[in-house]
Computed example of a mutant assay.
Amino acid sequence: MTTNAMAVPGQSYESLRDEVRGLVQSWRQAGRYSPSSDSWLRGFDPEFSRELAARGLIGITWPTAVGGRGLSNVARLAVTEELLRAGAPVAAHWVGDRQIGPAIVRHGSERLKAEILPGIISADYVFCLGMSEPEAGSDLASLQTTASRVEGGWLVKGRKVWTSGAHHATHIYLLARTTRGEKKHVGLTEFIVDMDSPGIAVSPIVDLAGEHHFNEVSFDEVFVPEHRVLGEIDRGWAQVVEQLSFERGGPERFLTTYPILAEIVEAPAEAVADVAVDVGQLVARLATLRELAWQVARALDAGDAPVQQAATLKYLGNAFEHDVLEVARKAFDGGHGRRGRLGGSGFRSALLASPGYSIRGGAAEVLLSLIARQEIM
């Protein structure tokens, strides 16, 4: 098979795509990275992120007044598709670029923008997400971490779990309860916290593949200055919902296993003849998922928060990622068949990590609940 699985009609932004393709090709030829699955979460390389920053490829959707390029979310989608299909090591800047920066642009004070956005754009700041807790995963509004008012700011106490990249992070986005009431969605506030603040401790969580990117983060009376509040106090839930559209509606929700699909597609036809129909179906599904991602990007450009559309993309995308692995298992006999172990695409690692695909960013049951609330036209 020689079909390019990404060859789908649509707005192309070819100059951006060509720039990214040239960059990843030069890094691969120099042996500076090898394509891998889950690269947006596990592929941590600050130098690669700084190279993107030097080319103006981080924060491209942000206004020029804050250091961005003022381009569309559709333009950013073209960049991120190319990075993910190449399995490039983008984890160092991914969270900051994808959702924290846009949240600060929309809701942050002028002081917060000036303090944080330049560090994200330059790839000097690495963000992690302080959302999930031991007793509040997909039911995010049930979180128990508290932030109490003190002179000049807040004191935070509690724990966050499954915090990817916290051991590398310079900053953490933190969702904490600032007021208790009858409705759990009320009384939540967003904060931007320095990871070197006294009272923060990071404990590693090693996954089934023996890899460390998850962590538990504890906060023991951590002081957060008043100006590090993101948006409105006690009204953070609406901002979280908007932010999740950025998190759930991107191509990382269906391109995590693309390097493995590409290896099958690019294999000699006779070597994978027994899965030809399966591969054709995967490529067709990929085209549909890409169109959904473009719809989400266009909605974001229109100023909307496409909650249901993003949930739909993530739900269908996670199923696609799992099916790619199943087809790979058949094509390569679990990595020990006709062509031997999959080269470079990390089949074993991806397979062991795959149970988490449908949990991170929201469990399938939560996504189906959101999808069911869509208006019937």
Rank of each mutant, 00 (worst) to 15 (best):
T256L: 07
E133F: 12
T64Y: 00
V105R: 15
S138D: 12
G303P: 06
I359D: 08
G337A: 09
D97N: 12
D45N: 15
Y13L: 01
A30S: 04
A147T: 14
E182P: 00
E232S: 07
A209N: 15
S72I: 03
E375M: 01
A262H: 15
L313Q: 08
A293Q: 05
R106N: 02
Q25G: 03
P9M: 06
D124F: 00
H212C: 13
A302F: 09
V275N: 02
G22C: 07
V8E: 04
K330T: 06
D278R: 10
L129G: 00
D301I: 03
P198I: 00
P306A: 07
W162R: 10
L52M: 13
Y125I: 04
E133S: 04
L83F: 10
G280P: 01
F223Y: 15
P102F: 00
F48C: 05
A176W: 14
A276V: 02
S218K: 11
R329W: 11
S109T: 13
L16I: 12
R248C: 02
A147V: 05
A53E: 05
G165Y: 08
Y125T: 09
A310Q: 05
P268C: 10
V156K: 14
F48D: 12
E375D: 11
G346F: 00
G70W: 10
I233P: 05
G108E: 04
F191E: 04
E14R: 08
V272P: 13
A293W: 12
L16Y: 08
R177M: 13
E365C: 03
G43A: 10
M1R: 00
D220H: 14
V222A: 13
P46D: 13
Q239E: 12
P118K: 13
E375G: 13
W94T: 03
R50I: 01
V206G: 09
R28D: 02
E182K: 15
V327N: 12
G70H: 08
G231W: 08
L325K: 12
V156N: 13
T288I: 03
T145D: 05
V95A: 13
V206L: 13
T288K: 14
L129N: 08
V217G: 04
T257I: 06
G59T: 02
R69T: 01
E81I: 14
L300K: 06
R177E: 07
G361W: 07
N73P: 02
G337W: 07
V193F: 11
G67D: 03
A169Q: 09
V275L: 14
V275I: 11
S138P: 03
W162K: 15
L174I: 06
L230T: 00
E82S: 07
E232W: 01
R149I: 03
R50L: 01
E216M: 10
V229P: 09
R159A: 12
Q308D: 04
S37V: 05
G130R: 10
G334F: 06
A271H: 10
T3V: 11
L143K: 08
A91C: 10
E242M: 05
D38V: 10
E270L: 12
G236W: 09
V272M: 11
K113Y: 01
A86M: 06
L77K: 00
G130Y: 04
P102G: 00
T288C: 03
A319R: 08
T312Q: 14
T257L: 00
S358C: 03
A141M: 07
L140C: 02
I120V: 15
